[in-house]
Design a binder for these strands. Structure first.
Lengths: 127, 127
DNA sequence: CAGCATCCATCAAGATACTG
DNA sequence: CAGTATCTTGATGGATGCTG
């Protein structure tokens, strides 16, 4: 019977906290890289050219802490570390793809909305 | 024929840019407030107690620019402004709910993963 | 009521240098 | 190779005061 507005988008603090940790810029890019095959640290750096080593380390630690990726020490001397996605991490994929699909479907409309906004609201007070 | 790993989570710069604008902390909370009924500026402030007026203004402008909400001047003197979600904004709802559902389903596992990480990795070097 | 302008604190993040 | 440590800076975000 309730077909419109079924669930009210419940957004608790833990929810938000979690999304902040796994949906941020670098996290999504890292997950995107790892979703098909495991990668080494510097492979990830090369695959994501704009990430600094510090940010990449931080991101990997956070994703590992949340259980969506795993860190494996392959060998020491020379040190080799491999990161791979966990089953929990894999389960994120479908919802993320939904959002990306939404973004793809509506990119055109959004660009139009932006252009309209920039032409009607912004030019008034210059800049 | 390709049933496993169908799409490689394509994440272009425009995609990321867009998600940064509509999936950030306050945006999700605002969209969550607006998804059922329009709201006035101060209604939103009261509904989201932690947001500063500055951040709320910025968030509303950005959402308006991206075409997911609309700003309506109801009356001047006293000024009354109402914000409401657009059809484009409504179309975001389902993908967002997918992610929130994922978060809800896996919150337990994630908390376990965090506890495990904090007990095995962190205590070694204190802090 | 619904903002804008300003100042200020905090914090994420880049650059750089060093290590097991 | 895979990081850690340190320094510095740029962007965010809050607090405050003012306005049509």
């Amino acid at each position: 019977m309730p077909e419109t507005t079924p669930s009210p988008l419940t957004l608790s603090t833990p929810h938000r906290e979690l999304l902040d940790q796994v949906l941020d810029k670098w996290s999504l890019l890292v997950m995107s890289e790892l979703c098909d095959s495991p990668r080494r640290f510097n492979e990830l750096r090369r695959a994501i050219p704009d990430v600094s080593q510090k940010s990449l380390t931080t991101t990997l630690r956070r994703l590992e802490r949340n259980g969506v990726i795993e860190r494996h020490l392959l060998s020491s001397r020379p040190v080799a570390v491999q990161y791979q996605i966990t089953p929990l991490g894999k389960s994120m994929r479908s919802p993320i793809e939904e959002i990306l699909a939404w973004a793809t479907r509506n990119m055109e409309r959004i660009n139009q909305a932006r252009a309209r906004f920039d032409n009607t609201v912004l030019p008034s007070h210059s800049e």
